[in-house]
């Protein structure tokens, strides 16, 4: 088996400064290998959002180690975490999180602003990604002029622009009707087929089953894995 692209070892997360602190993650162990499509399921309050934040380098664990692409990212500086989010992680959010005053193309270009490569150099790249998600005719539209499904496809295009190590999807179909939800899931299937590593967080059993491997979280612990 190849080296895992993600490796969580004994991850604990506490919230609050004073005792009794809120103990949310209670020793998570999880490995994800290159090219896997993993869904993480859990009820509300199970700790799956906290886990997502840690996986997305938006937060750091209180205890334990997080290796991303072989590097320990569990105790990095704010700037370093920003750089990792920019280069190694592609976010897909439930509510799309597009910037309303920017066009489709500009939204896809946002991650380039904060990296080393320039927007002009990558302009063609951005257009081809948008083309691959079927939005080449919508480049200069603003998010308010798009349907929910289109918005989510823009967000997926945006997550791909820096060619990240992992795609992190948080309830990607949560705000969509079932038909468009299916379309988005098909798009994710095809990304997986291209060899992308995808971690999808959801509470929907049916959606979770689209993934090649399902991880269930309950009360801060991984309780079940199936594949």
């Amino acid at each position: 088996m190849s080296q895992p692209i993600i490796s969580l070892e004994g991850i604990h997360k506490y919230y609050g400064e004073v005792e009794p602190r809120l103990h949310v993650l209670k020793g998570i162990r999880l490995d994800v290998t290159q090219g896997e499509f993993v869904s993480i399921m859990g009820t509300s309050g199970s700790g799956k959002s906290t886990l997502l934040n840690l996986l997305g380098c938006l937060d750091v664990p209180t205890e334990g180690s997080y290796f991303l692409g072989g590097n320990d990212v569990s105790q990095q500086s704010d700037d370093e975490l920003s750089r990792i989010r920019n280069e190694d992680i592609g976010f897909i959010f439930q509510s799309f999180q597009l910037i309303p005053q920017l066009t489709v193309l500009e939204n896809v270009q946002v991650p380039l602003l904060y990296g080393d490569s320039s927007i002009r150099e990558k302009e063609e790249h951005c257009r081809s990604i948008l083309d691959s998600v079927g939005l080449s005719h919508r480049l200069s539209h603003r998010p308010s002029q798009l349907s929910g499904g289109e918005c989510q496809r823009v967000a997926i295009a945006r997550s791909l622009v820096n060619d990240p190590l992992i795609l992190l999807a948080d309830e990607p179909t949560g705000n969509l009707d079932s038909k468009t939800g299916q379309e988005v899931l098909e798009l994710m299937d095809s990304l997986h087929a291209e060899g992308r590593t995808i971690i999808m967080i959801t509470h929907d059993q049916e959606v979770a089953l689209r993934a090649q491997r399902q991880v269930r979280i309950h009360d801060g612990l991984v309780i079940e894995e199936a594949s």
């Binding site: 997305g56 704010d78 700037d79 999180q97 910037i99 946002v110 904060y114």
Partner: peptide
């Protein structure tokens, strides 16, 4: 969003 996408402070 910008912070999530990699913007530093």
């Amino acid at each position: 969003v910008r912070r999530a996408l990699g913007a530093q402070k």
